[in-house]
Amino acid sequence: VLLLKIHATKNCSGVSLKTQELYAIVFVTRYLDLLFSFISLYNTIMKLIFIGSSACIIWYIRFHRVVSQTYDREQDTFRVIFLILPCLLLGIFINHEFTITEILWTFSIYLEAVAILPQLVLLQRTKNVDTLTGNYVFLLGGYRALYLLNWIYRFLTEPGYRQWIVWISGTIQTAIYCDFFYYYFQSWRRNEKLSLPS
């Protein structure tokens, strides 16, 4: 959705490069297993799509002659190091196995939970949020919220299925969107442009 929006409108105002870069870090550190394990064709294709689309979005915002001019550089100022470092420490200390790939995988789970924050802060600073950008954040949050249902279903149907690190991180991730969801639905119901209160 976001890549299509940027490609079609040649405009990335209201889009946080910081969040996209955090997602790129999340996908690369999590999908290292592309190199040594195969789960399904769907799984492999989606991993490649996630890595590829976020790389494309970053390229557009950073380097595209037209798109890069529309980037809200002065507004997108979230200090991502304050997210990356704690997640890395958490990944080193709370994991299933003390190996490089497992620590990086766990780090990516923690980082993903908070990766949307720079985008939410930028949306709050943007007076009139572009409809497509609002829809992108809604779909991203909705996609993760659906995982909660999936985890319940798998817990009930697969003996021994549990993964506390993923469940807790995913629940926090979805909770971070709650406020956004509220204003998204309100603006939808009133047929108004989305704007988050500051």
Binding site: R30, I39, N43, K47, F50, H96, E97, N150, Y161, R162
Partner: peptide, 10 residues
């Protein structure tokens, strides 16, 4: 081992 979850989700 159930405590060693397969990373089969995205």
């Amino acid at each position: 081992d159930p405590d060693d979850p397969a990373h089969d989700e995205l």
